[in-house]
């Protein structure tokens, strides 16, 4: 996910990465990683601490200061079989939440023009 600051609101972090800050730590699906030092005094999340704890690469553009945080690493591409809440847009530009298809089987197919 893209970032401009070194701290981030927990709700934004959840949307961007699928990881939720809970009392027991940072959680994704059924997996939790203790990270008491990741929460700042004002309830924000410290990006560098989390990046280190979860193996997320953090790169930045020196001109604009914009940063990108990669996904967790050090294991498999999937940390859990629970699908994170993904919000993409349809071809008309409307937001589409994957969770809107709960109750149905979904075959999610990646394709491209190239």
């Amino acid at each position: 996910m893209l970032l401009t600051e070194t701290t981030i609101d927990p709700a934004e972090f959840l949307t961007g990465t699928g990881w939720e800050a809970k009392p027991e730590g940072l959680c994704k699906g059924d997996m939790c990683v203790p990270a008491p030092e990741a929460v700042t005094a004002d309830g924000q999340l410290d990006v560098e601490t989390i990046a280190e704890r979860l193996g997320m690469a953090l790169v930045s553009d020196s001109e604009s200061g914009v940063k990108a945080l990669g996904p967790e690493s050090g294991g498999r591409a999937l940390t859990t079989a629970v699908v994170p809440e993904l919000e993409l847009t349809d071809m008309d530009g409307n937001p589409f939440k994957l969770s809107s298809l709960h109750g149905r089987k979904v075959l999610l197919v990646a394709w491209a023009s190239w």
Partner: peptide, 17 residues
């Protein structure tokens, strides 16, 4: 699922940036 070593995380971040 595929293996995800730290360099794949960096590749993802670089691609997005």
């Amino acid at each position: 699922s595929q293996a995800r070593p730290p360099e794949h995380s960096k590749a993802a971040a670089l691609f997005e940036l």
